[in-house]
């Protein structure tokens, strides 16, 4: 039984059994199907990470080449259309699952004591997901992307007092340009994903520590 020996040796040092027990052996109240939306979102996020990394293998964040490189992904690389298709629709589905997950938590009053912080991290996750949607929309550098982002950033420019500043900060200058594309790309593949991963970590830690909320009864 060398396998067992190796495992025990590792377990003694890493505490794998304890981790396994806290995550998988925990008991939770009887819940219904609406409670699967959180894990569904996590699953979608994982899928977005995988397909997103794959897309970055061929994508070039430059106004000259972004469109051509996506064209190449779609018709020049084997299965590129499938990977981009999953990434594209995955984004849409993720927004839906995040939103319904939030509505479910709201409906059951699960944001109340002792889960306030879980809720706050959840709201940040919702915002970060929308941020992913907004930054990712520009990357294909097609007509839709270009004009939607022009208008979207202009909206931020109407903030009283500091609108112009925000607009230039978002676009990296006065116009939508290669600088905008580069910073949206950085936000889309580094900043937001990192933020989301950290927030998911806290969110899940709290979910496991405090326990998932029960479906409220008439007296709750």
């Amino acid at each position: 039984m060398t396998n067992k020996k190796v495992f025990n040796w590792l377990d003694e040092r890493l505490g794998l059994t304890a981790i396994y027990k806290t995550i998988f052996e925990r008991k939770i109240p009887k819940v219904n199907w609406w409670f699967t939306l959180g894990s569904a979102t996590l699953f979608l996020f994982a899928l977005q990470v995988v397909t997103g990394i794959m897309l970055s293998v061929y994508y070039v964040p430059s106004p000259d080449k972004a469109y051509d490189s996506i064209e190449f992904i779609m018709s020049g690389v084997a299965f590129g259309w499938l990977i981009r298709g999953i990434h594209h629709w995955g984004a849409t589905l993720m927004v839906i699952t995040v939103f319904i997950h939030m509505l479910r938590v709201f409906f059951y009053g699960a944001y109340k004591y002792p889960r306030e912080i879980t809720w706050v991290t959840g709201v940040f996750l919702l915002l970060a997901t929308l941020g992913m949607g907004f930054t990712g929309y520009l990357l294909p550098w097609n007509q839709k992307a270009y004009w939607a982002t022009t208008v979207g950033t202009s909206i931020a420019g109407t903030v009283p007092g500091i609108g112009d500043f925000i607009l230039r900060a978002l676009r990296g200058g006065d116009d939508l340009s290669g600088v905008t594309l580069a910073r949206f790309f950085a936000a889309h593949i580094w900043i937001f994903p990192l933020l989301i991963i950290i927030l998911i970590g806290v969110h899940l830690y709290l979910v496991i520590r405090i326990g998932i909320s029960a479906v409220p009864g008439k007296n709750d």
């Binding site: 199907w33 409670f35 894990s39 699953f43 469109y67 259309w81 007509q143």
Partner: peptide, 29 residues
Amino acid sequence: KDLIVAFAIFLLLVGLALFVGVASEPRAD
């Protein structure tokens, strides 16, 4: 339950990618 829902979503996604796809748009102009 989580597994079943995740798998259903996965099938839906692959279906969307296969049968709807991503519409091609003209280059930014």
